[in-house]
């Protein structure tokens, strides 16, 4: 059983450990239960064996307004196979009992509300969840969940965008725990061929305001090792890759072994790109 009596700060510890080694963190995302529980567990294992530093698992939602077609499709696959928040927490429990990487949940607000904030966070903690990202819950609406997350020793990870004002950035940086999730572009999630023109500038701005007090990880449209090394070299402490991995799952639905092989190989090359810190 994970210890719930004190904050293990496993996410913070992971970033500190990587910083000592001169590496950035690779945060690898999959939608929970996609395409089915068994394959999802195998795919998550492939991410971890490939070298993911933190695993981010999505709770699928019927109306994912921040997500592009790839994650919409993965959410639909998972939901049509009967995935529920509780079921996915059960899968995370299996993973967290075998692997020591930190686990972060990404969920839209409604499934959390439906389970009850306190109940959701309690069960998440019992399953070994270390942090939570809620993409449709800006800091202004989040007092309740933040207080409860503190009680249950779960880091609440806020998002910042290229157009977040400096005043809001300070608030978001101040209230975020674990790391800050920087949306590196104007748009929804999805694989992109090139890094957005805003990405590197946004990383630099946010890093300068963070003053080293909280790690900053960049996500949305980070798809290739070159993107990962570019954001890390611009000062990001981590890179978050989601759609590029969910797309692999969608592309090889009839060949689970190929999915695992591809996921592991892709994560390996993304991870190597985090080792290219300057200095």
């Amino acid at each position: 059983m994970p210890n719930t009596s004190h904050n293990d700060d496993r996410i913070g510890a992971k970033f500190r450990e990587l910083q000592k080694k001169g590496e950035g963190a690779l945060v690898a995302y999959l939608t929970g239960g996609d395409p089915d529980p068994k394959a999802f567990l195998a795919n998550s294992t492939a991410l971890i064996e490939g070298g993911a530093d933190i695993v981010e698992i999505g709770i699928p939602f019927s109306d994912p307004i921040a997500d592009g077609p790839v994650i919409q499709a993965s959410s639909m696959r998972s939901l049509s196979n009967g995935a529920t928040p509780l079921g996915i927490l059960g899968m995370i429990r299996e993973l967290s009992s075998q692997f020591s990487v930190p686990f972060v949940i990404l969920s839209y607000y409604n499934p959390i509300l439906a389970m009850g904030l306190d109940n959701f966070l309690k069960k998440a903690r019992e399953s070994g969840v270390d942090g939570i990202v809620v993409p449709d819950l800006p800091v202004e609406e989040s007092d309740d969940i933040r207080n409860l997350a503190l009680k249950h020793n779960i880091d609440i990870i806020y998002l910042a965008a290229p157009n977040t004002s400096r005043t809001r950035l300070r608030t978001v940086l101040d209230k975020s725990k674990g790391f800050l999730y920087l949306v590196s572009l104007y748009g929804v999630t999805g694989p992109r061929d090139t890094l957005s023109p805003q990405a590197l500038e946004a990383v630099k701005t946010v890093k300068s305001l963070a003053k080293g007090k909280i790690p900053v990880s960049a996500g949305f449209g980070i798809s290739h090792p070159e993107h990962v090394s570019a954001v890390i070299q611009s000062g990001a402490d981590g890179a978050i890759v989601g759609s590029a991995l969910a797309r692999i799952v969608g592309n090889h639905l009839d060949d689970p072994n190929e999915t695992e092989t591809q996921l592991k190989k892709t994560v390996q090359s993304l991870k190597s790109a985090t080792r290219l810190r300057p200095g």
Binding site: P135, D136, E141, A161, P162, S165, R168, V183
Partner: peptide, 19 residues
């Protein structure tokens, strides 16, 4: 906060839309 009707309403949106 403005935009609340009792507990209803609000701004539950991705960060990019706050500005």
């Amino acid at each position: 906060r403005p935009g609340k009707f009792g507990k209803y309403g609000g701004q539950y949106v991705p960060e990019t839309l706050m500005e």
